[in-house]
Structures are given as C-alpha cells and as structure tokens.
Design a protein around this nucleic acid. Structure first.
Lengths: 147, 147
DNA sequence: ATAGTTAGTTCGTGTAACTCGAAGTCAATC
DNA sequence: GATTGACTTCGAGTTACACGAACTAACTAT
C-alpha cells in the first residue's frame, strides 16, 4: 500500500508542508514515482508514527535526527542498550506531559464550573472579580521542554 | 507578597526571557520598583496561571492576547457568555491534548516492554526488525495545534 | 574610593519548526 | 490547445521565544 503526499499528510492530520519538511531534512523516508513525486509506504508510516510520538514526548527535531542516526546503526546488543536508554528517557517525558495535560484539564474544568454557576445566577456576579484564580496555585509547571 | 523577575520565572519553570517577553507584549501585568525593575504580585500570578493553562490547551500567543483584551471588558452578562464560550472551546482542546498524551504514553510503554524483552533475551533479537511498529496504527493524530 | 559582583534594564539580532508564495513541470481533461 | 490539478524546488516569512551587547544602579570586598 502506498500513499500520495496529500493522503499521507491527511492521515496524520498535519499539513503537506510539514511532511515535505520532514522528508527534506531526512527524518522521514519516501520513494519517488516516475514524475519525481513523493510516494509513502508502510516504512514511512512506521517512521511517522515514531516522529509523532517523539514529538509528543517533547523531543526537538534535532533529538529526532539524532535518534534516526542511531537507528541506522547495526542491531548489536550495545546499540540496543543505547536505543533503550533513549526510549526510557522519552517515556519519562511523555509521563510528564501527561500529568501537565491532566492539570490543565482540571483547571479548565474548574473554570467551566465557575462560569456555569455565575451564568446560572447560582452565585452573584461579584463573587469572584478575578478571572483566573485557583486554590492549589504554585503547582503549575513543566511548561518548558528543555532536555 | 511580591516577587522579582528571577523568582517569578523560577516559580513557573520558565526562563526570565520568557517572562520579560510576556510583560513586553502586555499579556502579563507587572509593577515597577524605584529602579524601574519588574515586580510581580498576586495578580501577576493569577494571570501567569491563566497563560500557562491556555498554552497547555494549545492556544497561540495571539489567542491569549485576544482573551486578555476580552478580560478587560466590563463584567456584563454578555461578556460573561463570551468568556464562557472561549473557556469551553479551550477545555475541549485540553481534553484533546490529554488523549494525545495518553496515546503517546501507551506507545512508549509498549516500546519499553519490547526493548526489555529483547535485552532480557526473552525473545530473539530478530523478532522485530522494524524499530517503530504498533498495532493500532493510523489512529495517531491531533498533532497540529490549529484552531 | 575604587573595583568587582549581582540583578536588573532596553534593543536588536538569531533560531526552530514550520508556513507560505512564486515559478515551473507533467499528465489528464474540456 | 488551453486549463486544471497535483505535484516539484527554492527562498523568504512567521511565531515564540533565546540570547548577547551595552548599560545602570545597588551592594560588597579590598
């Protein structure tokens, strides 16, 4: 099974520009047809999966490039260990992103509840003049995606 | 209670550059001391909370600017409704981010399991020559943060 | 008193990861 | 045979910071 640029981009909900960019910087493999147009296959799908996930962990394009390089090495026990360490590290970051996402959802849920009450007239309009307030305040963090 | 630029940046785990940027583009309020230095207070804290959360929902700086403008309007029922709509919209996006974060964690967990087995010798090294493979494949999405 | 350190200031340029437009190619269609 | 559509490359633009340079003002050590 093969896919055109357009199809492939649609499958991952990203723009064609992005896919083109990924192929240009050599982190996403693709074939070319007789008219020099990009053709994507199962291998491309797998790689795009990986890229999407690494990005989901907060990895930079440079991180991903590095990983791609490592993946082209022979499958020795030593290299396996290296890959494993990277995967472990990125998984940790994935869990961090998850907990941040949870915190954000909680905050937004609180906000919605708050507005609902005001708009229902359940509590008077002047009960909370500050638009952004929360109880457990200085716990919001993990925002910067540094290594 | 007030905070210096350095303290404030540390509280939210971002750089001083970022905080300076936010004050410069007028989405984060701050006072100035006798030496013209930024001073942050409770109000700044609340706003920074909001900014962090909106960013967590995937909002752009322009979105946040827009929201800030709206927040400066009088607290009429009509404006409340507008704010509420925005909050609802952003909450939806927060849930999307959450589900994507979950998918990423799942993927990484699978990866880790896979490598563990290989490295333990539980399954032979050649069991899966493809580094990135998953069962439920074309479901990974939600990557682009467009409105 | 002079020198250095610390913590800030403004201003302007640099960077990452796209994002887009211009100009062109090629095959299919009206 | 002109238009349409989906692609190509190349280069420039954009967002959200990141950072260095040059400066200032207060403290601190010699």
């Amino acid at each position: 099974m093969t896919y055109s640029l357009k199809q492939f981009a649609a499958m991952f909900h990203v723009t064609e520009y992005t896919i083109r960019y990924y192929t240009d910087i050599n982190i996403l493999p693709c074939e070319r047809d007789g008219q020099n147009r990009r053709v994507f296959n199962e291998k491309s799908l797998n790689w795009m999966q990986g890229i999407t996930c690494l990005k989901g962990c907060g990895a930079s394009i440079d991180d991903i490039k590095e990983y791609c390089k490592l993946c082209k090495l022979p499958e020795s026990h030593e290299n396996m260990q290296k890959w494993y360490q990277i995967i472990l590290h990125q998984r940790k970051r994935a869990y961090q992103q998850l907990s941040e996402a949870k915190a954000t959802v909680d905050y937004m849920d609180h906000k919605v509840q708050h507005y609902k009450q005001i708009l229902n007239g359940t509590i008077p309009d002047d009960s909370n003049p500050q638009k952004w307030t929360r109880e457990n305040r200085p716990t919001m963090h993990l925002t910067n995606n540094k290594k």
